[in-house]
Structure formats: structure tokens, C-alpha cells
Amino acid sequence: MNRTDWISLEKKVTEWIRDAGNKLRRSLSGSLDVHTKSAHNDLVTNMDKEIEQFLVRRIHKYYPGHQIISEEGFGDKPTDTEGILWLVDPIDGTINFVKQKCFFAISIGIYENGKGKAAYIYDVMNDGLFHCISGSGAYLNNKRLSPLKPVKVEDALIDLSSTWIKPNKRIDQDVLTDILLKCSGTRAYGAASIELAYVAAGLINAYFTMRLSPWDYGAGLILIHEVGGQTTRADGLPIDILSKSSILAAAPGLHQDMVRHIRSQVASGKFLREP
């Protein structure tokens, strides 16, 4: 697709995502049909399914040759990254949606032959749309985001769940201890797409997790790259956008420091396991 095509696509996606956001806001005044999936804290609602179907139908209508990976399974099952691939999360932060009625987002990342081309993360309750077309700058609504500047560990605000600093099966609980003792502070918002968007906006300086699905991180990676940030797996290796993965996303300098620290901890005998 050429630039004109991407601009036309952005107009469509912006309209769809705002319509979907209106549906979600209206749904909060009624009752939700809530079920668990893989665990008691892995929720799905009738609105996750409704919004995903709404978006998938429109993508298939206007872009029938494109493929879709989506959380609730209404998309496709691509086996490679050839052509144009949409990574769609209808409600990222479903627990927040159900219990807090805030800090949840609609996330759409679009890749062409494996390269990030466009990203849309809509913070529904704040009416904040983080978006970009690769090479044209990243924005929060109409305000352009500034390029990220290098950050030292001592000055960093780092986002991570407490899951990864207590006993778990994916990372030794002590791997990040020294980093967290040195940094300015930690945060956790419970919606990966918003957290990645916050890295792109410079509101936090790094985001770390040991397990995300493509629809969770697809759009956020594109936004961060657009403002000069860096994203890899926790061990510094490239991310496979078709697979679940650990994610380390950070400002320049900080990313390298965190990767070096994690690798040194693994070399000393601490464990790190990909999904």
C-alpha cells in the first residue's frame, strides 16, 4: 500500500475505533455478561466479542485481502507475516473494564510483510487516541509526540506487574531487583496497550512483562519505534509478532542498560523462560 492508501485507512480505522469506544461507554451503564477463560483473572465479556466482531467485519469488508489476528478468535489464523496483517484487541484490560470502568483500550496494530506500518490505541474513558502511520510521527489525538530522549536507570519510571518480582515460572524473582532499587519508581496500569502507549508518550520510561500475546503488543511496538524507543524480548532478542512473547520496551539508553542487566543475571544462573 502507498501513503495515500494508509491515510485513507487511518480515516476508516479512526471512525471505527471511536464508534467502538462509544459502544463500550454505553455498555457500562448496563449489565455485562462476564466469563472466565484460562484462569479466574482472565475475563471475557459479551462486549469483548461484540467489539471484535464489529471491527473484524469492517476490516474484511474494506480490506478482504488482509489477515487478522484477534483475541477472541473472530479473525484469521495466519502462519506467516506476508502481506498485511492486523493485530486486534477489542478490549485490552478487561478486568479494568469490568471492575474499574477505566484504564482499558481498543488496540489495532497493522503490519506489512512483518514491518509495523500503522498503530491505533484508544484509551476509551479518557478519549485519548494514540496513533501513527510509520514515518509520519506519532500522535495523541492531534498532538504530536516528541522523540524519546535517553534515560538513565536512576531517573526511570518503570512499569511492570508484581507477578514478575515474586515466585513465578517465567523469570527468577530476583532478576530485576537491582534495577527496581535504583530506579525512580514503578507503576502498573493493567492494560498493556496503554502502558506501551505511555512509553511512547514519555509518561513512563520502560515497560516489562514476561508474557503478552500479539494483539496486546502489536500496536504499542509500532508507536514506540516511531518516537525512537526500542522494543525486544526480555533477553534482547527480536519479537516474533505471530507469537506470545516477553516484552521489554524502553527509551534509548535505558533499554540497553536493562538488557545488559538481565543478561548478566541469566549468565549468573538465574532463569528466564519465554512463553
Rank of each mutant, 00 (worst) to 15 (best):
L242Y: 08
I247H: 09
M258V: 15
L237W: 08
P252C: 03
D235I: 11
D240L: 09
I247K: 07
L248Y: 05
G253A: 06
G253W: 07
D235C: 04
S243W: 13
L237H: 12
R263E: 14
T231F: 08
P238K: 06
D257V: 00
V259I: 15
R260I: 12
S243V: 00
S245W: 05
G253P: 12
P252A: 06
K244Y: 15
I239W: 09
V259D: 14
I241K: 06
G236D: 13
S245H: 09
L254C: 01
D257N: 03
R260H: 11
D235A: 03
I247R: 07
I239E: 05
L237N: 09
H255W: 14
H261K: 10
D235N: 14
P238A: 13
A234H: 05
V259T: 11
Q230M: 04
A234L: 10
D257F: 03
P252W: 01
I239G: 00
D235P: 06
G253N: 05
P252Q: 01
I239K: 08
Q230C: 08
H261W: 10
R263S: 12
S264K: 15
G253Q: 12
T232L: 01
T231S: 15
L242G: 00
Q256N: 06
R260E: 15
T231K: 00
D240M: 07
A250M: 05
S245I: 01
P252R: 03
G229Y: 03
Q256W: 02
Q256T: 13
A249R: 03
A249Q: 02
I247T: 10
P252G: 02
P252V: 02
T232P: 02
I247V: 15
I241Y: 13
I262M: 11
I262A: 06
G253I: 03
I262H: 06
G253K: 09
S246D: 10
S264M: 08
A234M: 09
P238V: 11
A249I: 02
G229V: 04
I239M: 12
K244T: 08
R260G: 09
G236H: 03
S245P: 00
P238L: 12
A250S: 12
Q230N: 13
T231N: 14
T232C: 02
L254F: 01
D235F: 07
I247M: 14
L254D: 10
R233A: 04
S264W: 01
A251N: 05
R233D: 05
A251C: 14
H261Q: 13
V259P: 08
A251Y: 04
I247N: 13
R233G: 01
M258T: 11
R260V: 13
S246I: 05
P238T: 12
I247W: 12
L237R: 12
R263I: 10
Q256K: 11
A234G: 08
R263C: 11
A251F: 02
L254A: 07
Q256G: 08
P252T: 04
D257H: 08
I241H: 07
K244Q: 13
A250L: 04
A250R: 01
K244G: 00
A234E: 02
A250E: 09
T231M: 14
Q230E: 14
S246M: 11
L248T: 02
T231R: 01
D240A: 00
A251L: 09
L248I: 06
L254T: 02
L242K: 06
R263M: 14
R233H: 06
I262N: 04
K244C: 10
Q256S: 13
I239P: 00
H255A: 06
M258R: 10
P238I: 14
S245E: 13
A250K: 00
A234V: 10
A251E: 10
